[in-house]
Structure formats: C-alpha cells, structure tokens
Design a protein around this nucleic acid. Structure first.
Lengths: 189, 189
DNA sequence: TTTGATACATGACGATGATCATGTATAATG
DNA sequence: CATTATACATGATCATCGTCATGTATCAAA
C-alpha cells in the first residue's frame, strides 16, 4: 500500500530515529538496513527510496542526533553528574552519541565525520559558556578538558561495566572534575 | 609444508602481533581472519589450529597488547605530551589499544572485556604513582581523571582529524591537564 | 472516475566472511 | 630409514548483508 504525503515525512523521521537508537546501542556495523527498517515498522525494500545507501543513513542519523542547538540548561557540575551516572552508562541507546559512536565514526567516510565534527564544535561552544575561567580562552580550554574527560570516562565505564571499577570511574571522575572547577585557575606565566 | 616447533611459537607471536596492529588500525569487525593470517605471512586455513575462533583471537590479541607491567618511565606531563601528540593521533596501528578499541570492546564477549578491564586496572595503578596528590586517594583520583581526559581527547582528535579543531583538542587538553596538575589540591571540605 | 505516479513489499543477486573438510609435505620419533 | 603426527594450504560450505528488480496497491491529479 502506498502512504500519504504526511506518512512519508513521518516514516522518514521514524527511520532516522530507529537508526539513531540502534546505532548507539550496537554500533554502525552490527546494525543492518533490515534491522533499522523493521524497527521503524517497515521492510527493507523501501529503504533506498529514502537514502542513497547505508553510509548516507549513518551520516543523516548522526546529523539528526547532533542537530540540536539549544543552550545548556544547567551548570557544569550538574551536567557532569547526569552524564557520568550509572543510568547513562547503562542506556547508550538513548544517551550521548559522541560517547557511543565517536570511535566508529573515525573509520567512516566523510559525511559521518563531518556531522560529528560540526556537532562537537557546537557542543564545545555551549560548554564554554558554563565553564569556569577568567577569559574566553580559559573557558574554552576548560570546556575542552571537561568534555574530553567526560567522554573518556563514560567510554571506560561502559567498557568495564559489571566490575566495581566501572562505578569508581564514574564517581571519581565526577569528583575530580568538581574539584578542578572549584579551584582558581593559575594566572598566566 | 610443516613448520618446526620453534616456527610454530614464532608464528603464533606473528599472528598476534599482526592482529594487534590491524585491530587498532581498522577495528575488530573490519578485520577478517584472512587479513590477519595474510599479514602474518600465512593463509586462512591454519588459523583454527591456533585459535578457537575470531573472538578468541580478539581476546588474546588484547591480552598481548595490554600485557606489559613495566612502571611508567616519565612524569605525567611528559606522558600526556606524548599521548596527545599528532603523531600518536595519526598512527593508531602502533598506538594505545584503549583509545583505539575501548568502544568496540564494549560490545565484545567476556574475554575481550576482561582483558581490557585488567589492563585498565594496571594502567591506573601505574598512573597513580606519578600523579599529584597528598594521599593515595587523591593520587588515584587524579590518575583516573587524567587518564579519562587523555583517552577522550585522543578519540575526539582522531574523530575530527583533518580539521583545525583536531589539533586544538590535543594542545588544549595538554595545557588543561598541565594546569590542573600544577595547582594545589583543595583540602577536603 | 480514470489515469498516472510512487511508496513500499517481496524476492533475488552477488559479495563477503567465518568456519570446516581434506590433502600433503615435512618435522618428530623410533 | 620408516612411520606417524601435524602445520598449514586449498577449497568448499553456509550464513549474512547491501543493493537492486519487480510487482502492486493506493494516493494524487485530471
């Protein structure tokens, strides 16, 4: 049966959302085109009416996931608290696409890399606004350092999930970041 | 032709080393059994004489890569300087297996996860010894925070390789870590 | 209502890759 | 030297997956 114009737009949305969820959960390679379409309530045949190929789907799903531009709604320590929580660690399907997919994106073709790079740029700009520091340069540096630590810690905590080390990685990184950001930055030499 | 006893041991070594290199370069899934054997100068047929299956190879290759137990030979800022260098970013095949493979290991079966977890434990113990802090607890916290930031920054720099953001991530994280570790830790509240 | 366009289902195709079966030359053993 | 065990090459098998071909039912336009 053929769908209406509205249905088509909605289907496209549904496919992209299903892809975003599955990719974050299992990675790009372990998710098949059939998986995505089935998860969207369709069959594999219609896929190539929506996307050029699987790489195109990956690039567009990443762009969709990273597309938001709202300013951050909390201060740095609150963000870290949420980001470095066991709940976030245990639910990558709905979590940060950078932590879930950055490594795999490294080996993807240009479209996916470009979407990730653009998303990272926006994220660092937003983080700079809530980061400590006496000038813009220090704020940006703090944003980069904090973000690298958050992404790295979440990846390591997921890698070790199930061991007591995993919880320690989360809580100690939280404590470490909180301590860093409360200290006064050293004046330039 | 059949190889001698020594040849067999040497071949095993060669296979594991080839696997370690290829996995770090391309990830687990993109490397085939045939790739590994060819890179070791053999054909695919002999593989199952050495390993139970591909998952077994992955686990053993990770254990081999992470097996070293030597204490760290430099101070923290020197390590970060080397770790967060463009050279390391551009040569994952010979670089840190954690940065290259942590994300993919998350979805691997137990053997690979266990090897990574054990390696991470040792690495944190070594790092604690060269980390700043007035007591063991603070040293360990600094080790965790520094390591998370280093791994995260390297992954993000590889993801954005080719853009000017990539170099910025490396140098700013280096500067941020150096600044953090020179400051006096705040006394406990 | 008729006609044409098209969204999607079904099914096929070709490539790839993990794993196994078999043959053989040679090391190891006596 | 004769015999046996085995390391490894060649080749087959089976499953999976990306992609394409085709048919059809229904939406859209006249």
């Amino acid at each position: 049966m053929r769908a209406s114009r509205e249905q088509v737009q909605e289907n496209r949305r549904t496919i992209l959302e299903a892809a975003g969820r599955l990719f974050r959960e299992r990675g790009f390679e372990a998710v098949t085109v059939t998986d995505v379409m089935k998860s969207a309530g369709l069959t594999h045949g219609g896929f190539y009416g929506y996307f050029k190929n699987k790489d195109d789907l990956i690039a567009q799903a990443l762009a969709e996931l990273l597309g938001g531009s709202e300013p951050l709604s909390a201060d740095l320590s609150t963000l870290a608290e949420r980001y470095l929580s066991p709940a976030h660690r245990d639910n990558s399907a709905c979590g940060c696409p950078v932590a879930a997919l950055a490594s795999e994106t490294i080996r993807q073709p240009g479209g996916a890399r470009a979407a990730m790079t653009a998303g990272l740029k926006r994220q660092l700009e937003r983080l700079s606004e809530v980061s400590p520091g006496s000038d813009a340069e220090q704020k940006r540096r703090a944003a980069i350092g904090n973000w690298a630590a958050m992404v790295g810690a979440l990846i390591l905590a997921r890698m070790t999930a199930g061991s007591e080390l995993s919880d320690e990685l989360l809580s100690e990184t939280r404590a470490w970041l909180a301590a860093q950001d409360q200290r006064e930055p050293k004046p330039k030499a």
